[in-house]
Design a protein around this nucleic acid. Structure first.
Length: 432
DNA sequence: TCTGGGGTCCTAGGACCC
DNA sequence: TCTGGGGTCCTAGGACCC
């Protein structure tokens, strides 16, 4: 048996957790660079503000209704997420942190000693709310796909009080009929259109298609597994992990620039900063990377013809998680794809080919001493930045030209709330 | 110029997720 | 004027091997 715990409108809930006067009023949170709506309160949704909509398109509507707008504040959301997940790890025998606001719990054999799983799930909701002020819904079912589906049913059926438990066939059938195929986990826009055209509008319809049909029309084995899961036969297990966090297979950092850039030094500064960030993530999960990709993008919405993006892949002679080494390759990659007199809107760095750091290498002795010193230096760097704040210590490539306080690539964040929980200097304005 | 089966590895692209 | 960021998995096809 699996449970899916999903935080309701997570980013909006995080803002409300520290500003209770935002309860009951329409609130939205915008993506990086204040681009799109990525989280809405129920009140904002009721006003007809679509998810993912560019801010400038819904701005008039929001101003008209006095919608409270926030820039995204990932320091805050990440911290609240850690608190929620920490509690879930204590409350369940197995935990898989699926995203910043969702986790699967493995409940095998739980009903014996926890009694009624509905009461158990209700207690989890109440406890998460008490500890973090984040509201959640819980779906409980024999497969992960059905747990996701049960969660959606819980969200849209107020009578269930946030918990939906599919403990028998009749209930499973009933739940499948409540949910449109568009809202099934694994059915995106393309497949949903296809399914509607075939006269299969609900999850119940989808659960009755043949395996051959699913294979043919829904992406091969992926579709076949999806249908089996809807029928109640588990095809996906929890990802194994000691603390619930997943070890990533690729690590990326990319940003749309606040303003278009065409000076090499500016873009190099951005690529340097993104590389540093990926290296930090890499070390945090104890990995080293073999492959580094650098990419640059032009304005997709502008008048320039495609291609909008150029990228280059560098294979490193030896896996590393050393920032300065990765910076060297990133710089070489940038030089390869750089075109003068071009206006760039976005850049990014991706690390692939990850392996465990500290694997014995076929290196000469002198090289190993060098590596050990490097590893110690990186650990020191991470410690300092953790203690005194991000970018307290950084590499020269990521430095700003003299006289500049903010890097030219940094995006807009006009309505960012304070980092209540992670920065001493922003704590002072806390109001509860 | 024609002739075969079976395997691996890599990459690009497509679909999906939050 | 203004359109996010970070991931996963699978498949098909090509290069190469015996």
């Amino acid at each position: 048996m699996f449970a899916l715990v999903d935080c309701n409108n997570f980013y909006v809930s995080c803002e409300r957790a520290f500003q209770p006067h935002l309860q009951g009023v329409p609130v939205v949170v915008l993506s990086n660079n204040d681009g799109n709506v990525i989280s809405r309160s129920a009140e904002a949704k009721a006003l007809g503000i679509p998810m993912g909509e560019p801010y400038f398109k819904v701005k008039p509507l929001m101003q008209q209704h006095g919608v409270r707008v926030f820039s995204s504040n990932y320091a805050l959301y990440g911290d609240l997420s850690r608190r929620v997940m920490h509690y879930l790890g204590e409350a369940a025998p197995e935990l898989e942190i699926y995203s910043i606001d969702e986790a699967f719990l493995g409940l095998h054999g739980m009903s014996r000693w926890q009694g009624d799983l509905v009461r158990y799930a209700a207690r989890i909701r109440a406890e998460v709310l008490r500890r973090t002020r984040i509201p959640t819904c819980v779906g409980v079912a024999p497969t992960k796909t059905l747990a996701k589906l049960a969660n959606r049913v819980a969200k849209k059926t107020p009578d269930l009080e946030g918990v939906c438990y599919l403990d028998c066939d009749e209930k499973r059938q009933w739940a499948l009929e409540q949910i449109s195929v568009d809202d099934v986990w694994g059915i995106g826009h393309q497949y949903a259109t296809k399914l509607h055209a075939q006269g299969l509008p609900t999850a119940a319809h989808l659960s009755r298609v043949s395996e051959a049909w699913a294979r043919k029309h829904l992406g091969g084995v992926v579709g076949a597994r999806l249908v089996r899961e809807l029928q109640g036969y588990p095809c996906h297990q929890l990802a194994p992990s000691e603390d619930g966090t997943l070890a990533r297979q690729s690590i990326c950092c990319s940003r749309t620039f606040g303003i278009p850039l065409s000076a090499y030094q500016d873009v190099l500064g951005a690529v340097g900063a993104f590389t540093s960030r990926t290296a930090e993530k890499l070390r945090r999960q104890g990995s080293a990377a073999h492959v580094l990709t650098v990419f640059l993008s032009k304005d997709r919405f502008g008048l320039e013809p495609p291609p909008y993006s150029a990228s280059t892949v560098l294979t490193l002679p030896m896996a590393t998680n050393d920032t300065s080494e990765l910076l060297r390759y990133a710089r070489a990659g940038l030089k390869r794809i750089w075109q003068p007199d071009t206006v760039y809107k976005k850049a990014g760095v991706v690390l692939d080919g990850l392996e465990r750091a500290g694997q014995p290498q076929l290196a000469l002795f002198s090289g190993q001493v060098h590596n050990e010193k490097r590893t110690a230096l990186m650990a020191e760097l991470d410690q300092l930045n953790k203690r005194f704040g991000m970018d307290t210590v950084r590499f020269a490539t990521a430095l700003l030209p003299t006289g500049q306080h903010v890097a030219p690539w940094v995006g807009k964040a006009t309505w960012r709330s304070h980092a209540y929980t992670t920065r001493w200097d922003e704590l002072w304005s806390l109001r509860i």
